[in-house]
């Protein structure tokens, strides 16, 4: 009961802090805050795909882009009402995810990486070559922030929505992660043959995880479209995807808190690194990542676990 109460207080405190930041931050800091929240939402989902289910996939940012492009095109070009456009976007991204996952899962691990890498590259190419329909290399811009229930989805309203989206993703993946489904995912990651011997349908589990996490990346992408009311194909490229992978690895793959911590760390690092080491900041960033991955195999959260263990006496059995 105590643990339940502590968890409830933790969630409420988190929500209160995010709400307070949403209502007070302005200008550059507001922009950093909402992009950080969107990236953290992606990181939490990618951690489930990669850290829990062990799928080495590179399509997470592509689905983020699919969400952003689809909602913009459907609501501005086709004039669909926002809820209709949102549902259609989710349907489309789920369908695309299935189309990638089903053939990729017939093949083994390495091919999932190749298939999703190809898919991610193809997405950027199609968006760049899409002419007027996708806006080509310039992307889509000049559309208005939508209005929901009379509130314009901009400024503090937008940040509140993104805060709620992040918390909802975190809560969903936390619940899923500690449920039978999360255990089945980790079993499939650790030893697919042994998982099948326990009755876990390995292919179905993999497809379900990929479709769910990819669709939720698209939902985050829908929100991203209205962060600046600007959608550009190069934002969703493979560079960003690798940074997302490093966020999860450095934070601690397979741990929700790790994904969030790793995201905050890598997202904020360039902000401070530039002042510290000037034009060498990219080099410093790279070296730091190599060092962390060499010496902290379980990421920042693994270091935290070790410290906490040292401070606390061994619990009685």
């Amino acid at each position: 009961m105590n643990a339940k109460l502590a968890a409830a207080i933790g969630w409420l405190a988190g929500a209160a802090i995010l709400a307070a930041l949403s209502l007070t931050l302005t200008g550059y800091h507001a922009d950093l805050f909402r992009k950080l929240l969107l990236t953290a939402t992606l990181a939490v989902g990618y951690n489930f795909q990669f850290g829990f289910a062990g799928q080495i996939a590179f399509s997470h940012y592509a689905f983020y882009g699919i969400g952003a492009y689809a909602i913009t095109i459907l609501s501005t070009r086709f004039g669909l009402a926002l809820p209709v456009a949102a549902l259609a976007t989710i349907g489309l991204s789920a369908l695309l995810a299935l189309m990638v996952a089903i053939p990729a899962n017939r093949l083994e691990g390495f091919y999932i990486a190749l298939a999703t890498l190809a898919f991610a590259q193809l997405f950027v190419v199609v968006m760049v070559q899409g002419g007027d329909f996708t806006g080509g290399p310039d992307g889509l811009f000049g559309f208005d922030a939508p209005t929901i229930f009379g509130a314009r989805l901009a400024g503090a309203n937008f940040m509140l929505v993104v805060s709620a989206l992040f918390l909802a993703n975190l809560a969903l993946f936390a619940a899923l992660g500690r449920s039978w489904f999360g255990r089945a995912c980790r079993a499939v990651r650790d030893d697919p043959e042994a998982a099948a011997a326990m009755g876990v349908d390995v292919a179905r589990t993999r497809i379900a995880v990929f479709t769910l996490t990819s669709s939720l990346a698209a939902v985050a992408g829908m929100a991203y479209a209205f962060a600046d009311n600007f959608v550009n194909p190069f934002v969703f490229g493979i560079d960003a995807m690798f940074v997302l992978l490093f966020m999860v690895l450095i934070g601690g793959a397979g741990r929700h808190a790790g994904a969030v911590v790793g995201c905050v760390f890598l997202f904020m690092l360039p902000e401070y690194l530039g002042d510290l080491v000037g034009r060498f900041h990219l080099l410093a960033y790279g070296i730091l990542m190599v060092v962390v991955m060499m010496f902290l195999p379980n990421g920042i959260i693994g270091l935290w676990d070790r410290l906490a263990k040292r401070l606390r006496p061994e619990p009685a059995r």
């Binding site: 039978w180 489904f181 990651r189």
Partner: peptide
């Protein structure tokens, strides 16, 4: 062939997979 990323109790719970009735 235990599931190495899980503790002993969690390994047993994977064994209970066929008994789970809760929907996803």
């Amino acid at each position: 062939r235990p599931f190495k990323g899980m503790n002993v109790l969690e390994n047993l719970l994977v064994g209970a997979h066929r008994r789970v009735r809760a929907r996803p």
